[in-house]
C-alpha cells in the first residue's frame, strides 16, 4: 500500500463526480474509483478494495450514511476510514455523521484545487 489511500467515491451527481475526479486524480494525484449510487458501491466495493470511503450524503435511494452502515456490515469494510461530503453544514448534521464513524465531513461546494490536500490531511491525522 502506498502512503496515499485508494479512494472509493460515491456521488450521484455526474457533474460533481467529474469535478471530483479531476480534483483528486489530476490535481491531487490520488487513485480514485467512482460509483453513482450506494447500491453500486456495495456491489463493487469488495473488488475495488478501497483504503478510504468518500461518500456524498444526500443521494436518492440509499443515502451516504445508509451506504456506510451497510458497508460496515461487510467484515472487509468494518473499519475502513470514511469521509462524508455534504451541502448541509449544520452542527447536528456534522455530529450525526461523525457519530456514524466518519473521520470528518467536507462541506460543498468544495474547492477542487485543495480537495485532495484536505483529504490527505484528514487521512494522515486519523
Amino acid at each position: 500500500m502506498s502512503d496515499l489511500p485508494k479512494i472509493l467515491h460515491v456521488e450521484d451527481d455526474p457533474d460533481i463526480r467529474e469535478i471530483a475526479l479531476m480534483a483528486l486524480e489530476v490535481v491531487g494525484g490520488l487513485d480514485v474509483v467512482q460509483c453513482a449510487s450506494g447500491a453500486e458501491a456495495l456491489e463493487r466495493a469488495p473488488g475495488i478494495a478501497p483504503d478510504l470511503l468518500l461518500l456524498d450524503v444526500m443521494m436518492p435511494g440509499m443515502s451516504g450514511d445508509e451506504t456506510l452502515t451497510a458497508l460496515r456490515k461487510v467484515p472487509q469494510f468494518s473499519e475502513t476510514p470514511a469521509i462524508f461530503m455534504t451541502a448541509k453544514a449544520q452542527h447536528s448534521e456534522v455530529d450525526r455523521l461523525k457519530e456514524l464513524g466518519a473521520l470528518d465531513v467536507i462541506t460543498k461546494p468544495f474547492d477542487p484545487m485543495t480537495l485532495a490536500d484536505q483529504i490527505i490531511s484528514i487521512w494522515q491525522e486519523r
Binding site: I16, I19, A20, M22, A23, A87, F110, P112, M113
Partner: peptide, 9 residues
C-alpha cells in the same frame, strides 16, 4: 459545486 469546480479547474 460543479460550476465553481469546473471554472477553478
Amino acid at each position: 459545486t460543479s460550476i465553481k469546480g469546473a471554472m477553478k479547474l
